[in-house]
Simulated scan of single mutants.
Amino acid sequence: MRIRATALAGAALLALATGSAVAQPIYPAPDPDSFYAAPADLADHKPGDVLATRTMPSLSEFPDIDVTMIKFRSTGSEGNPIAATTTVLSPRNRKFDAPLLSLQQIINGLGAQCAVSRALYTTDPNLIMREAPAWNVLLQRGWSIALPDHLGPGSAYGAAKLGGQITLDGIRAAQRVPELKVEYSPIGMTGYSGGGMATAWAAALAQSYAPELRIAGAAMGGVPMNLVTMLETMGYGAHPAFGLAMAAGIGLEREYPDRFPLSEQLNAHGLAIRDKLANSCTNDILAAGAGQGAVDVAKTTIMSTDPTARAVVEENSLELFGGVPNMPVFEWHSPIDGLVPVDAILATDRRYCGSGVKLWTAEEPVPDHLTAAVLGIPAALTWLDARFRGETPPVNCWTW
């Protein structure tokens, strides 16, 4: 089961202890594959520029599908140039300018092996994406599917804005690879939970970050819209998913080492857990943090209201971001979600509607985060198919 709780990053707003720093941020082990490495002239490239491509081995789950990996220039959370990657699945008999869907997969992890481009080829049963064969339905329609590694080269789990920027640059890059035949394709985006967060940020950032992209629509579900609210909802006691919360804090520290110095605030027990998580994926992250809470890993039990650290969490909270999508949006969620506060989703939807976004929102009548994902996907894909065909997007803002 792939449990997603990236937005529990708010739980990493631990007390800012006084005194000198005793620990530096911990980063993932370098990927042994040199393809992922940033070139020396990275800063000379613009966001979305293709840095390298390579043809990947065929996958048994996807008959008659070409697999192309693209390395491209993107932008880190604090504006620095980074090298990011996306993997494009293309029908071998693809037609020019058939739809391109950027699918932001759920990625729970802090290590290089957790990335989608790795998971596609893994034999580790804990990392295999069991839903992947269902993508054949879309590929058989003639669509191409781009799967970005939206946590970036530092595996910055919890850095939501970063995921949006990488998603947009991955689309740019795919359109600049001639053999993919998607230069003028209608573009769609989709994702759920953490993948929905990357999708939602891409939609909201598109107008300012990638205004030249003409995106037909974005479908996102179960989106953690406000990381601060997640903190307040979760509380600070023991929680079975605290490992994911801790991982999100580590990811934010990787992107904001000066503004979010998590490692400085951890006690010996917290540092031991941090070290276990540094290169882990879902199952190991959950195991390392199970039954723990912020009070167990911090130097002090007083929670922080430090404005600098809090600002990092706010910067990655879409409800608090002023931009709105410049494309139609399909949003779905459970009305009683045990992981994601629904009030933040509804507040964001209302703001979008008030700003003129062509929004269709749907509630799946189940009190479960993951079940809502499964139930909502068919309607989301049907909605995207209609956007690709150029149909007028439905709007249901007036029903609230």
Results as ranks from 00 to 15, higher is better:
residue 123 T to H: 14
residue 123 T to V: 15
residue 124 D to F: 02
residue 124 D to M: 04
residue 124 D to E: 03
residue 124 D to N: 15
residue 125 P to M: 06
residue 125 P to T: 04
residue 125 P to N: 08
residue 125 P to G: 08
residue 126 N to G: 08
residue 126 N to E: 12
residue 126 N to V: 05
residue 126 N to P: 03
residue 126 N to A: 09
residue 126 N to D: 10
residue 126 N to S: 09
residue 127 L to N: 04
residue 127 L to R: 04
residue 127 L to A: 11
residue 127 L to W: 00
residue 127 L to S: 03
residue 127 L to G: 01
residue 128 I to L: 07
residue 128 I to H: 06
residue 128 I to R: 07
residue 129 M to N: 14
residue 130 R to I: 06
residue 130 R to N: 09
residue 130 R to F: 12
residue 130 R to K: 06
residue 131 E to M: 03
residue 131 E to N: 05
residue 132 A to V: 15
residue 132 A to T: 14
residue 132 A to F: 15
residue 133 P to I: 14
residue 134 A to Q: 13
residue 134 A to C: 03
residue 134 A to S: 15
residue 134 A to W: 13
residue 135 W to Q: 01
residue 135 W to C: 00
residue 135 W to T: 00
residue 135 W to A: 01
residue 135 W to K: 00
residue 136 N to D: 11
residue 136 N to S: 08
residue 136 N to L: 10
residue 137 V to K: 12
residue 138 L to D: 06
residue 139 L to H: 13
residue 140 Q to H: 09
residue 140 Q to E: 04
residue 141 R to M: 05
residue 141 R to H: 12
residue 141 R to S: 05
residue 142 G to I: 01
residue 142 G to R: 01
residue 143 W to N: 01
residue 143 W to F: 13
residue 143 W to H: 08
residue 144 S to G: 14
residue 144 S to K: 14
residue 145 I to G: 07
residue 145 I to K: 04
residue 146 A to H: 08
residue 146 A to L: 11
residue 147 L to I: 10
residue 147 L to S: 04
residue 148 P to I: 15
residue 148 P to A: 11
residue 149 D to I: 04
residue 149 D to V: 08
residue 149 D to E: 02
residue 150 H to Q: 10
residue 150 H to N: 07
residue 150 H to V: 07
residue 150 H to S: 11
residue 150 H to L: 04
residue 151 L to C: 07
residue 151 L to F: 11
residue 151 L to I: 05
residue 151 L to A: 11
residue 151 L to K: 12
residue 151 L to G: 00
residue 152 G to C: 03
residue 152 G to V: 13
